[in-house]
């Protein structure tokens, strides 16, 4: 295999492995949305507050997945 292909192979595998971290973000979003929906079901009057806080929490959980994305983007496009 020529060196160029090896580099591309390595980058692709590395970027793919880095994206495993996105799973954590997904789990977090699932838990927080599940909790929020249950809370909304119990007291629908507070839907607005719960929704705001849920979206914030989702954004934080998503941030972890985004770190993984940044790492994999750096592997793909910045490393040479």
């Amino acid at each position: 295999m020529d060196p160029q292909s090896t580099i591309i192979l390595g980058k692709a595998i590395g970027a793919g492995l880095a994206m495993i971290g996105a799973a954590g973000g997904g789990i977090g979003i699932g838990i927080s949305v599940g909790g929020a929906v249950m809370a909304m079901g119990r007291n629908p009057d507070h839907t607005a507050t719960i929704q705001t806080n849920m979206i914030l929490g989702v954004a934080f959980a998503e941030a972890v997945a985004i770190y993984a994305l940044v790492v994999s983007l750096i592997i793909l496009f910045v490393l040479s």
């Binding site: 998503e62 941030a63 985004i66 770190y67 994305l69 940044v70 983007l73």
Partner: peptide, 13 residues
């Protein structure tokens, strides 16, 4: 780091 990468990552993606 967390501030800057959160914003960068979300908007870049």
């Amino acid at each position: 780091l967390s501030f800057s990468f959160r914003l960068l990552g979300n908007i870049f993606a």
